[in-house]
Amino acid sequence: MEIRESIKNYIQTELVNDKQYSNLSDSDQLIETGIIDSLGIMKLIGFLEDNLSVQIDDTELVPENFSTIDSITSLVENKLA
């Protein structure tokens, strides 16, 4: 599966708990809306590391990299490039 789709699918099925976000777009804010919280981000990192074979450094664990599906995709793609 394409990286973007795989990330989107994970967030949609595992992290979204609210009906109003049942159809996320790539630019929807994930942090402000609470879709990703402190527990969610640890789950997401586990998913990226286990399923997409990237290692997220502590310095990369910053809001700019996790604010939208777009930004998470860029982070992963840049690391794999």
């Binding site: 708990n17 609470g34 527990l39």
Partner: peptide, 21 residues
Amino acid sequence: ISSSDLRMFCSEKLPKYMIPE
């Protein structure tokens, strides 16, 4: 039913920290 739909059902009644992971 999917687990994601069940979590949404919980989120209508429970705070986030109580929703089964």
